[in-house]
Amino acid sequence: MNGRIPIILISGYLGAGKTTLINHLLAADHGRRIAVLVNDFGAINIDAALISDQTENTISLTNGCVCCSITDDLGTALDALTLREELPDLVVLEASGVAEPSRLARHAGNWPGFELDAIITLLDAETVQLRAVNKFVGQLVKSQIEAADLLVLTKADLVSNETCEKLAGWIETLAPGVSVIMAEAGKVAPELIVGLPARSNLSQTMKEEPHEDNFSTSHWTPPGPIRKDNLIRKLEELPSSIHRVKGFFVDADTGEAVLLQRVGSRFSFEDAPTKAEVGFVMISAGSPDELERGMKILSSIVDVSPLHGPSVVHFN
């Protein structure tokens, strides 16, 4: 663990539903201390009962989350977060509708004390294809799709299934292999956006599946140490509906505990705390079959990895 605060970048052109998603995320019961940075503070709409404190540029919520306005400069807004009494678990950064997400991600994700977790791009199912051929914003809308680790198709309920399928095919040509979540308006299960708590006891989250919000999680406890290169090969084979994978495992080459985080097609390995309980969790909004298939792919790693050690490892 390097102590940097992860940043999830929410990208998407005007009207894609970023504010709806953020309103939903802030009020949801996800057990995480999220700091949300927004451009349009006035559009934030939260049930007064959930607000514990409010100033000109900040709303504090009873669930520990906070929403701040990026009044002028992103760096200043990020610095301000590091000065808070309780550091956020993660930052959700709302990109302006015209931001090139890869440029913004380089800026925010390398700001001292922070790192990029994922770029999530929201697409308005009704308008995205028209926008993508617009002479002024076509390139931008395509860049937003291409830069994404996860895509959320909002207002999917407002178009026909056939249109949705065609859209998915078109998106696949721009962003091959990137997961696409279908959402009504901007309502997406928070777990799909922000993942699962990094330091929580994994076995707790493994109990519940499937979830009411139309996503499911699945878990697997590896029987022994795993080689990173084998794991990478398996990760690349996973179906695109597997949005996030997180796991603690023992590196077979070094004997050290490692944390894997995968969002969309991007993944990272970090040193894990020695008390971590080994195990992998997958989150998917696809069909249960695909989740099962994903688990099979991941667990087949034991066939190529030398087996040694107990099936559940505790590090002390």
Partner: peptide
């Protein structure tokens, strides 16, 4: 700056300071 085709030699893109609709 936002360039019409053929854009920049290195293929990068410019940016909008406000959304065209805005």
């Amino acid at each position: 700056m936002q360039m019409q085709e053929p854009g920049f030699i290195d293929g990068h893109h410019g940016e909008w300071l406000m959304a065209p609709e805005m």
